[in-house]
Simulated assay, not measured.
Amino acid sequence: MPKLKTKKSAAKRFRITGSGKKIVRRKANKNHLLEHKTSKQRRRLSNPALVHETNEKEVRLMLPYA
């Protein structure tokens, strides 16, 4: 079976933690229209989040090095 190519769009959106067991993502809604959002909301959106376990398999298929 040939090597799988990395999906570059996924590689830019996700990264693997040091242990290799978890996948980190950015939160949505932090790009524009920030004026009406509270500073508390903007601050929360800045923190990275983990990919949910139900979606982890799909992300790992897009990232063969994961």
Rank of each mutant, 00 (worst) to 15 (best):
V24W: 09
R26E: 13
H32G: 12
R25G: 04
R60P: 03
A28D: 11
L61V: 13
I23C: 05
K27V: 12
L45H: 03
T17H: 08
K22M: 11
E58D: 10
N29A: 05
N31Q: 11
R44N: 15
K21R: 08
V51G: 01
R25I: 04
K7S: 03
Y65T: 07
S39E: 07
A66I: 01
L50D: 03
R13D: 13
T38V: 08
L63Y: 01
A66N: 02
K27Q: 15
R42H: 04
G18N: 11
I16D: 04
K12S: 15
K37F: 08
K21E: 11
T38D: 12
V24D: 13
E53H: 05
Q41E: 12
N29F: 09
V51Y: 03
R43F: 05
N29V: 06
K37L: 14
T54E: 03
K30P: 02
K40Q: 11
S9F: 03
R26W: 11
L4V: 09
L45I: 05
R44V: 15
I23Q: 00
R44S: 15
P64H: 00
K5S: 14
K21G: 05
N47M: 07
P48Y: 01
A66P: 01
K21N: 09
E58F: 02
M1Q: 11
R60C: 09
K21S: 07
T17L: 12
S9W: 06
M1T: 09
L34M: 09
S46A: 07
P64I: 00
Y65D: 10
N55R: 08
R42Y: 05
R43S: 08
K40A: 12
K5P: 11
S39G: 04
K21Q: 10
N55M: 10
F14T: 02
L50P: 02
P64F: 00
R60A: 09
K5I: 07
R13N: 15
I23K: 01
E53A: 05
L63V: 04
P64M: 00
K3D: 13
K22A: 10
M62Q: 10
K30L: 14
